[in-house]
C-alpha cells in the first residue's frame, strides 16, 4: 500500500501522446514547424487556433490519416476519431455503424455504447433519419465503443446548433470522466476550450504559441467570471480584439 502511494507521488503520469520536432509542409508551405507536444494519459487538451493554422493537420497526423510528415510521433494503438461531420456509413443501421471495425458486430456492446450517449432508441434506424445532434452522438458512441486511450475530436460541435452544442459539450465532459481517456479536441471556440480543457494550447504559425493550464473544478459554468476571463485571454492570444 505504502509503495503504491509512493509511486503515485514520485512517478509522473505516463504520456498518451509524444511529439518531437514535427514538420509538415504542403507544397513548400510549412504548416507545422518543429512542433513539440506531449499529452498525459487521461488529460483533456484543447487545441485552439485560427482557421488554417495547422491544428486539423496535427489531429490528422495523430489519427494516422496523414503520413507525409517528418519528426517523431508516438500515439497509443487504441485511438479513435470523431470528425466535424459524423461520417456514419449511410448504408448501415446506427448500431452497425457503432461496431464498425470491431472484430465482430456485437449488438449488446453497441447498445451499451448508444445508451451512454442517449441513443438507445435509435439503434435500428438508418443514419439518414438522425438529427444533426443525434448523428454526432452516434459518431461519439462509435469512437468510444473501442475504449480508446486517445480520443481525437476534430471540431465535433462546430456544425451543431447552439442548444445542441451545449448539451453535446456536457456529454463529452461526462464521457471523458467516465472513460478516462486522453482527449485532444481541436476547435476555434474559446468558450468551449475554457469549459472543457485541463490544458489549452493555442497554435499559431505551425507551433504551439501559447499554453494554459486550467485548474477550475468541474462541471464548469459559462457564467463563472473565471471562465469569462479565460475566454478573453484566449481571444487575445488568437489575435481577436474584443
Amino acid at each position: 500500500m505504502a509503495s503504491l502511494v509512493h509511486r503515485n507521488i514520485t512517478q509522473a503520469i505516463p504520456d498518451a501522446v509524444r511529439i518531437t520536432r514535427l514538420n509538415r509542409t504542403f507544397d513548400g508551405r510549412r504548416v507545422i514547424e518543429g512542433l513539440d507536444l506531449s499529452i498525459a494519459a487521461g488529460e483533456f487538451v484543447v487545441l485552439l487556433g485560427a482557421s488554417g493554422c495547422g491544428k486539423s493537420t496535427l489531429l490528422r497526423i495523430l489519427g494516422d490519416l496523414d503520413r507525409d510528415f517528418d519528426g517523431e510521433v508516438e500515439v497509443p494503438a487504441r485511438r479513435a476519431v470523431a470528425f466535424q461531420a459524423p461520417r456514419l456509413m449511410p448504408w448501415k443501421k446506427v448500431w452497425r455503424n457503432v461496431t464498425l471495425g470491431l472484430p465482430r458486430a456485437d449488438r449488446q456492446l453497441a447498445e451499451r455504447a448508444l445508451a451512454e450517449v442517449g441513443l438507445s432508441h435509435r439503434a435500428d434506424v438508418w443514419p439518414k433519419v438522425l438529427s444533426g445532434g443525434e448523428a454526432q452522438r452516434a459518431s461519439l458512441a462509435r469512437a468510444l465503443v473501442r475504449e480508446p486511450e486517445l480520443l481525437l475530436l476534430d471540431e465535433p460541435f462546430a456544425a451543431l446548433d447552439a442548444l445542441t452544442r451545449i448539451k453535446a459539450q456536457a456529454l463529452v465532459a461526462e464521457l471523458w470522466q467516465r472513460h478516462g481517456c486522453a482527449v485532444l479536441l481541436v476547435t476555434h471556440d474559446v468558450e468551449e476550450a475554457a469549459l472543457l480543457a485541463d490544458r489549452v494550447l493555442v497554435m499559431k504559425d505551425g507551433v504551439i504559441a501559447h499554453e494554459h493550464r486550467i485548474d477550475l473544478p468541474r462541471p464548469r459554468d459559462v457564467a463563472d467570471p473565471a471562465i469569462a476571463r479565460l475566454r478573453g485571454r484566449f481571444l487575445d492570444w488568437l489575435g481577436v480584439h474584443h
Binding site: 490519416l65 476519431v81 461520417r87 473501442r146
Partner: peptide, 15 residues
Amino acid sequence: TLVEAARTLGMGRAA
C-alpha cells in the same frame, strides 16, 4: 471522408 473514417476505426483492407 467515409474511407478515412473507416481507417480511423481500424478497418483492414478487406473490411
